[in-house]
Design a protein around this nucleic acid. Structure first.
Lengths: 215, 215
DNA sequence: ACCTGAACACCGTTCAAGT
DNA sequence: ACCTGAACACCGTTCAAGT
């Protein structure tokens, strides 16, 4: 129900500039801001400035800053193309999860939303997010496991993906000069954290380790 | 080398209150603040207020807010007791990882640090963190895999743990009322994300899936 | 209707002083 | 030496107006 149209007076000329601030204009401006200045500059005030509107006007379109971030993530994931899936159900899960990471990884700032509002991406999912969920759960069931087990696998893949996105997002950030604090920096103590991308093998391990379990 | 002691004049009376703001006093105040008011109240200004010192004074002890957070995480993990480890090397990894989660999970705010400065916990690790790393890597090698493979496993367990801490930290937070936005909330779309703790099984899957891999 | 300036209650950080 | 107030450049959010 659209509450009746209260547009009578705009017979042909919309007075002033048209609504000016549509959802898509806001998203576009936000993306521009993020690309040009980095996502930490995406603040309510700065975005309003970018749109050339009063800060307060933005609050007619978003409930608060977090809402803006959530909508932005949904917008971005919905833009993301679905990958071609292989035959083998297990490999299907791997491919879907990897492309989920790609979808989120393109938005390093997604991290803030992912954690502050796990709902954002999962509790109030858009069509595209739902596709990821369905594909993973569906393929797991196809490969012969119970729905419970499939749910468990999905949750764990989700945790793994969130971790990967978070860690790699801020790994790329301009490194705060390290070493030379008070402690002697403990000699790069990690052959442990290689720079290589261990994510795909991790996904595979998770998938096989879960689906092969017999208990 | 202690740079020579420049304490000549405090023969027996330390003028005024003694240094007032030692590292441990700062940590204690920070913990009190977090426990009493929630970790989002842990701000440089608020902490100084809690300590009854000028905001600026704090900057003699910390480099900046992020540094405070990092030191706090290190302080907290170093306080955490080492678990008793089982015989079986694989199960040793599982137990160590689960208790790593516990150490970090006690600090929901660790999330911010974990992501903003993965270094914080890993690049500049304290003794206790190192113990986790060594135990996991060591046990992996004990169970017969190459150092490379052990490093891969460790990294993936780390990603998984970060994801778990992040997601569950903000799951417990006072839920922002959901439902009834503009979209019709898509009917709780998830048998997918059960409330149950899937973490231990995930760790096991990761461990077995990685160590059983033959390639 | 639709938009907004001014204000409120905060931030982190710096710097030129004070004792 | 050790500490600090005042200032700078920001935040998110609200509310009583303006057109």
């Amino acid at each position: 129900m659209n509450q009746g149209t209260h547009r009578q007076q705009s017979r042909r000329t919309r007075r002033g500039r048209p609504p000016v601030t549509s959802r898509s204009e806001i998203f576009a401006a936000a993306r521009r801001l993020i690309d040009d200045e980095g996502w930490e500059k995406l603040t309510v005030r700065r975005l309003a400035q970018e749109l050339d509107i009063g800060t307060t006007t933005l609050y007619h379109h978003i409930r608060d800053r977090n809402d803006l971030l959530v909508q932005l993530v949904n917008d971005a994931t919905s833009r993301f193309p679905q990958p071609e899936l292989p035959e083998d159900p297990r490999e299907r899960i791997v491919v879907a999860t990897i492309s989920l990471r790609e979808a989120l990884g393109a938005l390093p700032w997604a991290a803030e939303v992912l954690s502050v509002d796990g709902e954002g991406c999962i509790g109030r999912p858009d069509r595209q997010t739902l596709w990821f969920v369905d594909t993973i759960i569906g393929s797991a069931v196809d490969s012969g496991c119970t729905p419970d087990r499939a749910g468990e696998l999905f949750r764990n893949l989700w945790l793994f993906t969130v971790g990967e996105v978070m860690v790699s997002a801020h790994g790329k950030a301009p490194r705060t000069e390290l070493g030379s604090r008070d402690a002697p920096a403990v000699e790069a103590a990690d052959p442990s954290l290689p720079d290589v991308d261990t994510f795909p093998q991790g996904v595979r391990a998770l998938v096989h380790g879960t689906l092969d379990r017999t208990d």
